[in-house]
Design a protein around this nucleic acid. Structure first.
Lengths: 124, 124
DNA sequence: CTGCATCCTCCATGATACTG
DNA sequence: CAGTATCATGGAGGATGCAG
């Protein structure tokens, strides 16, 4: 089975998704065009700085568009591009997988942790 | 569109994939059971430490199995679990997306960079 | 061969304060 | 409102040496 992951390029793009906020913001923008302040509110826990930085990266990659209205106070709107929507669609199966297997994974972790603890104890 | 990403759990699992080596190793193991030294060879650029650390994490999450043969010299084999194979299948669309859109993304980056450079120059 | 311990570096992220 | 600038920091990851 060749997954194409040996290819450096696929791994580079993982970074676009793998950071802390990108996918989250993409998901929020999938609901429609939103302003900076709204994203700030809805992306729980994000700092202003990381919101700016992450949006810049997404804009640079052609995943979101940034529209600035020269009014006072400023108004800036962000929206997903077609590329961005495609991306989200491609990641959806993974998101579904996560939700489906969360209990399984947590169980595996607990089982692993208790098992290794016992081994550590037996070592005494 | 609800992507389920607001859910903290989905974002936690992104970490399992989003790190530097996990998905790479999963892809390599999709080709079949492999020994530590072989993974070390095939995962180009990985350090011994990160190979160990990453495999431990995957084992803990129930994504790979670790089988140790008590011989001299040691022989340890890693293999994907069913859960791991499921995971890889779920991520495949994303990998395909990456390969399909690499040129598009690189073009967007260049366009963005030259555009912002011009704006910076115009600011002088 | 496989893997742990140690040390070290760098970068992603966060906190805070300031600005058009 | 939507940023930018600055500083601080934790943790990911790499290098190296040792061990069973």
């Amino acid at each position: 089975m060749d997954t194409g992951l040996g290819d450096c390029r696929a791994r580079e793009n993982l970074d676009r998704i793998g950071d802390k906020w990108s996918l989250y913001l993409i998901a929020l923008l999938a609901e429609g065009t939103k302003r900076f302040s709204r994203l700030k509110r809805e992306a729980e826990g994000i700092s202003q700085r990381m919101l700016t930085v992450t949006l810049r990266g997404l804009e640079r990659d052609g995943i979101v568009t940034r529209t600035m209205y020269p009014v006072m106070p400023p108004r800036v709107e962000y929206a997903l591009t077609d590329l961005g929507r495609d991306l989200l669609a491609a990641v959806t199966p993974f998101i579904a997988w996560c939700e489906a297997h969360v209990p399984e994974i947590e169980a595996a972790r607990e089982e692993y942790d208790t098992r290794t603890e016992q081994e550590a104890a037996a070592f005494e």
